Amino acid sequence: MPLNRNVLVVGGAGYIGSHTVLALQEAGFNPVVYDNFSSGHRDAVFSDHVVEGELSDHARLSRAMTDHQIGSVVHFAALIEAGQSVIEPLLFYRNNVASTVSLLEAMQAAGVDRLVFSSTAAVYGNQADTGLLHEGLPVQPINPYGQTKAAVEAMLKDTAAASGLKAIALRYFNASGADARARTGERHDPETHLIPLVLQTAAGERDQITVFGTDYPTEDGTCIRDYIHVTDLARGHVAALEKLLSTDEEAGAFTPINLGTGQGYSVSQVIETARRVTNRSFTVVESDRRPGDPSALVSDPSRAHAVLGWRAEHSSLENIITDAWNFMNRGIG
């Protein structure tokens, strides 16, 4: 019996979701985008099949799965700004956790038992002194955003144990870059991520870029992070989905998997690479450390290699920044 390759991509108009829709199509899947467009972009929808709706709208969600004969789900829809989550935790729990309950109930009603979940390295919290972060470490997030992702992971694990659900939670490190053909890229509002902020400064859209802390125990004194190209993230979702569809076991299963490179770059390295790629000079201001910022967060990606056969292939810092800059300047010149 042929595999059902109809996939409901929840949040498929967002940054990572839109890249994943493109990757799914290239891999022979039939993605159906389900999005409320609260933060996604209509011009970033790359599927002919789109359902506009809320995850809390159980009837609409169930109908979408039935009408499009969905065989699996990729779940991106979430609020992601950690600072906002501290101010409005209930908003995050309602949007990120309660809505996932609705999604899982709709999946059960429609007989859909494969799910790839967009999780985050924020579930590890501040464990920089452990070296490379691996999936065997305790889950101990330090803000409500990370708590909501950890809560969904726990819910998936419990649901898998009680039913036939087969789920993979992909714990992202620092998603960055853009589609190499500039079809889609990073457009958050407000923008809080380092690379687009640096590039906006290079483009003259910001007066300066602020470096928070230059006295960390790193080679140049600035924080180190694991930056992964969004195209590699998208490929990781395809690999996870292929893995889930390749098993015909009836028992449920839940597996968390890091998606990162195992290579860290400092804030200063990001800024210097941006200067070189853009050939622009811009103002950098040094400030005090931000509370809770660990000196280094770098993934151990070995489980992704072993389980999914996946490796980051596009994630050199220069390539990430070049693609992000080209997307920012698309249609100009």
Rank of each mutant, 00 (worst) to 15 (best):
Q84A: 13
H49Y: 05
T322Y: 02
S246H: 04
F92M: 04
R235L: 06
Y15K: 08
S72F: 08
L104H: 04
S38R: 15
V51I: 09
R289D: 13
V267D: 10
E26T: 12
S295R: 04
P144A: 01
G213F: 07
P217N: 13
E26N: 12
Y172G: 06
A59F: 06
R225M: 00
S18H: 09
S316H: 04
D226L: 03
N126R: 13
L245F: 12
S163L: 00
Q269G: 06
V86Q: 08
E318D: 13
L317H: 12
V139H: 01
T210D: 01
F37E: 14
V86D: 09
I142T: 14
F92Y: 15
I195Q: 09
A106R: 01
A251L: 05
V33A: 04
E54A: 15
D67E: 02
R225P: 05
I271Y: 01
V139W: 00
L79K: 14
T148N: 01
P294K: 08
T20F: 01
T148M: 00
G125A: 09
F37C: 11
S118Y: 07
E186Y: 15
I209G: 02
D288K: 10
Q147I: 04
T231W: 01
V97L: 06
G262D: 14
A306F: 12
G111L: 03
H68L: 00
N329W: 08
L55G: 00
K243A: 12
I257V: 13
Q263N: 11
G252L: 02
D293M: 13
E272P: 09
V267Y: 09
G12A: 02
S316Y: 04
P141E: 09
S163C: 02
Q140Y: 05
I257L: 01
D113Q: 12
V50F: 07
N95K: 07
S118L: 03
P301V: 05
H134D: 14
V45A: 07
V285S: 04
S295G: 06
V73K: 05
T283K: 13
N143M: 03
S39A: 14
A161T: 13
A150F: 09
K157V: 07
V211S: 00
R187S: 09
R181F: 05
A296N: 03
L199E: 08
A304I: 03
E191Y: 03
I320F: 11
S62A: 10
G264A: 02
T322L: 06
H75Y: 14
Q147R: 07
L8W: 02
E318K: 10
L244E: 03
A202L: 10
R290M: 14
I16F: 03
R280S: 10
I16D: 05
A154F: 06
G136L: 12
D35V: 11
